[in-house]
Design a binder for these strands. Structure first.
Lengths: 210, 210
DNA sequence: TGTTAAGTGTTGCAATTGCAACATACTATA
DNA sequence: TATAGTATGTTGCAATTGCAACACTTAACA
């Protein structure tokens, strides 16, 4: 798994961060991250921790828009958030590196190998990250809760090669991920059980079809 | 707007493509692109043309999963498609460059400035592309057609700074983009008109609120 | 310019969903 | 282990949506 500093020595990493004028920020568990940090023209690197970006719907429900974890890169990629009602929360103690995108692009010493390695790493990380986005779009474009669920199951099952799926989060979070009402999700899962498509024990779901 | 060969001379571009063992492929308008090309472990660059990746739903409806246009980069980012029922179609005459991801990562002459520029460009392109993905997720996570429409309107309006929105595609395509039934979309637009939220003339939609 | 295909508008109806309200189960911790 | 807080299960009901069918309009092109 690539991280932004893969194949860069600690010494060169420090030098690079200095030359790029990087900021290092720490957030305690369950503190909110100022919007100005998320939606400015910077590349952010989550060194460690866990951040959720959640949209607050007018009726009090939430939608999970983005999760950021160790080694994730975010940036102008989420600048569309400027116009939205959202909260970014560090759910764990979190350490961020913030680098102005322009200082990355216009870095003077272009020939430095550690700089080039850094860019290559960023590219690889974004390439991987794109998978998650596409996967979610693939799921969200299904039109019924049942089909969203089945798409989620199938993609997950294909990924692990197993008919057993271990939910990595709560059913509440699953409902947010699928962007559907929790109780309606619960109902649909009940139907799928009754019709013999799946078997559910706690957070383990077993696919019984195909 | 960055393209993969920004700030690289034609001569160096050719050298780079040769060293990376790149394939160049042409597709005529309205021909399908073999899946093996889309979902292998390569980075694809759309030199020119327009590709749609569409999922075929069992009931005959479609979902637009991805659009690729001039200078777009795609790659292992869409490898999840392997498991899905989709068709990739060149809607215009299209020229593709295909490069094995490994040969990019393991490129021997790491110090070549054109190579480093190339990676930097790929990074910037993916960073921009991520915006579209996030934007769409932002929209798709709205739970009603009305809210999806309004989110779409708002984000578009914020982007252009205008209350007038020119649909860049048909209402059929809009329905696919929002992942909702076309006739239900049509009905909802009618309601929005009747309630005075919007005004519609052909493909121009004017926001009357706020 | 006539013909055909594609896009758009409309509506009844059944299926699905969100919402609200409440019951029950689980989990952390004082 | 008692208790509070969170998660999950359930259900009636109203709102929303998908679906199908058909009419009408616009665009493409021979």
């Amino acid at each position: 798994m690539t991280n932004p500093f893969t194949d860069i020595t600690e010494k060169n990493k420090q030098k690079l961060l200095r030359l790029l004028d990087a900021d290092i920020l720490n957030f305690n568990e369950n503190t909110n991250i100022p919007k100005s940090i998320i939606d400015n023209n910077s590349i952010g690197i989550v060194v460690e921790g866990y951040i959720q970006i959640i949209r607050i719907n007018y009726n009090g429900t939430n939608a999970l828009i983005e999760e950021l974890q160790d080694n994730d890169v975010f940036g102008s990629s989420i600048s569309y958030l400027k116009s939205s009602d959202y909260i970014a929360t560090a759910k764990e103690n979190t350490k961020l590196i913030l680098i102005d995108l322009n200082s990355i692009i216009n870095f003077k010493e272009n020939s430095k190998s550690y700089y080039n390695q850094f860019i290559k790493n960023l590219f690889l990380i974004l390439n991987e990250k794109m998978q998650d986005k596409n996967r979610r779009i693939q799921i969200l474009t299904r039109r019924t809760i049942r089909n969203k669920l089945l798409e989620y199951f199938n993609l997950t099952s294909k990924g692990t090669g197993s008919k057993n799926i271990y939910l990595p989060f709560s059913f509440i979070a699953l409902a947010d991920y699928l962007a559907v009402d929790r109780s309606a999700l619960s109902r649909e899962i009940k139907y799928l059980k009754e019709e013999g498509f799946i078997d559910v024990k706690g957070k383990r779901i077993t696919l019984l079809y195909k």
